[in-house]
């Protein structure tokens, strides 16, 4: 009999998280009691049909929204009671966002876009510049630092966004349909890049309704009606 391997420590933990909206006289239960632990270094996919609560869960994991009840904690520290200012600071230090539509700031160059997260931590300087250059090389964008987002292809823009998400050494990358706006070749490239990052030990949480992407994750959390329907574990 072999002992099961020691589970990796949790970076984030949700316990009985609920998020309800008041829509006129009706209460919409977007999340209705979620219990979930996210392990360090894991590749997690959150899947489900539209309306299942994926986006709401993503917003809570991204600290953009607060649960109506229940607790969400990052590295053991509860965050539900933080002020808007504190929440902004925690978000800026710990979370790396990757969006479906890239969401780069058009009037800034690639380098400046990469520096935005550090700007809000008052950490702009030669060091942030060196880091931006390193990450640009890492995602395959060396030599494009002076370009504007509009001068780049969709795949390149998403690479910039991934590099930006890594600038603050986040606890986890939070990817929202990261390849939804890309063609299948580019999608494959981006997914390969995410795989590589995961292999380097980066925690990735991906929200998607694309089964091909879910297949890459180690664990898939299926949501339905604001609850966890079931969890798939993939051997890798």
């Amino acid at each position: 009999m072999t002992q099961p391997p020691e589970p990796a420590p949790c970076v984030a933990e949700l316990s009985d998280v609920r998020r309800h909206y008041q829509m006129g006289t009706e209460v919409v239960r977007a999340l209705d009691g979620i219990d979930l632990s996210i392990r360090r270094g894991e590749y997690l996919a959150i899947m489900g049909r539209s309306g299942s609560g994926k986006s709401t869960l993503l917003n809570i994991l991204g600290l953009l929204d607060r649960p109506t009840s229940g607790e969400y904690s990052l590295e053991g520290k509860p965050v539900s009671t933080l002020s808007d200012k504190q929440l902004s600071e925690v978000r800026g230090r710990n979370i790396g966002f990757i969006f479906q539509s890239f969401n780069l700031i058009p009037q800034l160059t690639v380098l400046e876009n990469l520096e935005v997260p550090l700007f809000y931590q008052n950490a702009i300087g030669p060091e942030s510049r060196r880091k931006a250059e390193e990450l640009a090389v890492r995602v395959g964008l060396s030599g494009r630092l002076k370009h504007r987002p509009t001068e780049l292809s969709g795949g390149q823009q998403q690479r910039v966004a991934i590099a930006r998400a890594l600038m603050n050494d986040p606890l986890y990358l939070l990817a929202d349909e990261a390849t939804g706006n890309l063609d299948s070749n580019t999608e494959a490239e981006i997914l390969t890049l995410l795989d590589e990052l995961h292999a380097e030990g980066i925690t990735i949480i991906m929200v998607t309704h694309n089964p091909a992407m879910g297949d890459r994750a180690e664990r898939v959390v299926w949501l339905a009606d604001g609850r966890i329907h079931h969890i798939e574990e993939h051997a890798r």
Partner: peptide, 16 residues
């Protein structure tokens, strides 16, 4: 509006 959303997501406080 979207730029504001991006900046908030990347850690900007209201003050910023």
């Amino acid at each position: 509006t979207r730029e504001i959303g991006i900046r908030r997501a990347l850690g900007a406080r209201k003050r910023n």
